[in-house]
Design a protein around this nucleic acid. Structure first.
Lengths: 106, 106
DNA sequence: CATTTCTTGACAAATTATGTCCAATAATAG
DNA sequence: CTATTATTGGACATAATTTGTCAAGAAATG
């Protein structure tokens, strides 16, 4: 099943598992250590490129990490909304609708 | 059921239904007409405040409009992802998890 | 205490969003 | 067809947000 930890928490767990200091992982990723610190504590967003690097470095499943990454993004957008569940349902229906539409255009 | 039109399309339909020119609705909303034109064609985002004004002006269901608005936001974030459905599922699980957690803290 | 690790806040630079104007195009009425 | 009204598109300035960097301080380790 999919990990429900935030992407930041997952990165931190990978790193601690491998016993690499934050400073060194930051160097590997070519970012400032303070930036990585913020990413691990979900104070700052990652991006897809970095997810790919993380997956390579820790031999983790890139696709699962991407699901974590994007679900974080979605979560931050709507977490305060009472109707979050309906919002997600409607978003899914819209995306599906979009896809059938563009398929028909072929 | 929830309307699957984009929020922009819904605003346009309200406006055309009421036979109000774009220019006039823009004036009511106190925005430039070109901005409203872009909003109606989903080239530019609205915001919650404007949704509330729209609901008042057209006596529409504000909550439903908000669901449309936020589902648009979510859709744009993830529509290109193959695993969009899983992303949404995980996002929902995360939000639910967050909520039970904060409830327990009371 | 000394060293290493991590966190924090301040700041500038870059990117993205927003607001406005106005000319071009489209639609409609006369 | 012409005039009028409505809508769109692009250019531009300004504002807001994000991102990258640094250095000092706090926390943990030995």
């Amino acid at each position: 099943m999919q990990n429900l930890d935030s992407i930041g928490t997952q990165i931190r767990k990978f790193r601690e598992e491998a016993e690499i200091p934050l400073r060194k992982l930051a160097a590997l990723l070519d970012i400032d250590q303070s930036t990585l610190s913020k990413i691990e504590r979900d104070e700052r967003r990652t991006n897809v490129q970095m997810i790919e690097q993380i997956a390579r470095i820790f031999k983790a499943d890139k696709d699962k990490l991407l699901v974590s990454f994007y679900s974080d993004v979605v979560m931050y957008e709507i977490q305060k909304e009472k109707a979050f569940s309906e919002i997600l349902q409607v978003a899914e229906a819209k995306i599906e609708y979009q896809r059938t539409k563009t398929k028909k255009l072929k």
